[in-house]
Computed example of a mutant assay.
Amino acid sequence: MDTLENAPDQPERYCGAFLSVLPVAGAAVSTIGHVLGSETIAASDSQAARIDEIQFDLGEGPCWDAMRSATPVLEPAVGTAGRERWPAFAQSIVPDGVNSVFAFPLAIGPLRFGAVDLYSRIPVSLSDTQAHQAEAMAEIVSRHVLRRALASIGDDANEPVSAFSRRLIHQATGVVLAQVDISADDARLMIQGQAFAAGRPMMEVAQDIIDGRLRFIRAAGRIEVAL
């Protein structure tokens, strides 16, 4: 716990703190929703980052539920019970061999802005003691994340870009907005729909939009994709 307290400006150490005390294989820390945007701040491995990205793209999963409810989400059997809660998410992580997922909200007071995601390839459950410990650690991470976000306001040009940055999607949203003159929310939804239809991650589709390989146009009163 002290190690986590003393690492406010070292996001790469956030995940390790959870892995050192909990029976999980991977962890990710992410902001979600409109308060700070959707961004993976840190991930212990590529699989943890992929699990986060799938949830961003689909708009469902344990991190969303934890953020919206401001309470932990504990699902030791995502392959069975998880299919009822998050059908698209549970189906999407089948190739990853993930059996258990847990999410703890990032929140300060009434402000909800993210979650810590944990996963295990083997079926595991967290004891009450472990769950309370993870909650306490998530509270520490919440303070670190919010302080970093507030400190970076007005200094985006100098802010280090995470290896898991979602800025591509923000940039692509602006491009689509300019191409077909729709709201930012609708532009992002179009990118999400295109990614879903093509079976690709949103960031890949966003890169195609930014590079000009994929464009949206208005034709006969409808919005179409121009490849």
Results as ranks from 00 to 15, higher is better:
residue 48 A to I: 08
residue 49 A to I: 02
residue 49 A to T: 04
residue 50 R to F: 05
residue 50 R to C: 00
residue 52 D to M: 09
residue 52 D to R: 08
residue 53 E to P: 06
residue 54 I to A: 04
residue 54 I to S: 04
residue 54 I to P: 05
residue 54 I to N: 04
residue 55 Q to C: 01
residue 55 Q to E: 05
residue 55 Q to F: 09
residue 55 Q to N: 03
residue 56 F to R: 02
residue 58 L to T: 00
residue 58 L to Q: 00
residue 59 G to I: 00
residue 60 E to F: 08
residue 60 E to N: 08
residue 61 G to E: 07
residue 62 P to H: 09
residue 62 P to M: 04
residue 63 C to V: 15
residue 64 W to T: 04
residue 65 D to I: 10
residue 66 A to Y: 09
residue 67 M to N: 12
residue 67 M to I: 12
residue 67 M to Y: 12
residue 68 R to M: 11
residue 68 R to A: 12
residue 69 S to N: 10
residue 71 T to I: 06
residue 71 T to H: 13
residue 71 T to P: 02
residue 72 P to E: 03
residue 72 P to I: 03
residue 72 P to G: 02
residue 74 L to C: 07
residue 76 P to Y: 13
residue 76 P to G: 04
residue 77 A to T: 09
residue 77 A to I: 06
residue 79 G to H: 08
residue 79 G to R: 14
residue 81 A to H: 06
residue 81 A to R: 08
residue 82 G to M: 07
residue 82 G to D: 06
residue 83 R to A: 00
residue 83 R to Y: 10
residue 84 E to N: 00
residue 84 E to C: 01
residue 84 E to L: 05
residue 84 E to H: 06
residue 86 W to G: 00
residue 86 W to C: 02
residue 87 P to S: 11
residue 87 P to E: 10
residue 87 P to D: 10
residue 89 F to Y: 14
residue 90 A to G: 03
residue 91 Q to M: 12
residue 91 Q to S: 11
residue 92 S to F: 10
residue 92 S to L: 06
residue 93 I to F: 11
residue 94 V to C: 02
residue 94 V to L: 06
residue 94 V to Q: 09
residue 94 V to Y: 07
residue 95 P to E: 15
residue 98 V to P: 01
residue 99 N to H: 13
residue 99 N to W: 09
residue 100 S to K: 05
residue 100 S to H: 13
residue 100 S to E: 09
residue 101 V to Q: 13
residue 101 V to R: 07
residue 101 V to N: 04
residue 102 F to D: 01
residue 102 F to G: 03
residue 102 F to R: 02
residue 103 A to W: 09
residue 103 A to Y: 13
residue 103 A to R: 14
residue 103 A to F: 13
residue 104 F to T: 09
residue 106 L to D: 07
residue 107 A to W: 13
residue 107 A to I: 08
residue 108 I to D: 12
residue 108 I to R: 12
residue 108 I to N: 08
residue 109 G to R: 11
residue 110 P to F: 10
residue 110 P to S: 10
residue 110 P to I: 12
residue 110 P to R: 15
residue 110 P to T: 08
residue 115 A to W: 12
residue 116 V to R: 04
residue 116 V to N: 06
residue 117 D to F: 14
residue 118 L to G: 04
residue 119 Y to I: 01
residue 120 S to I: 09
residue 121 R to Y: 11
residue 121 R to H: 15
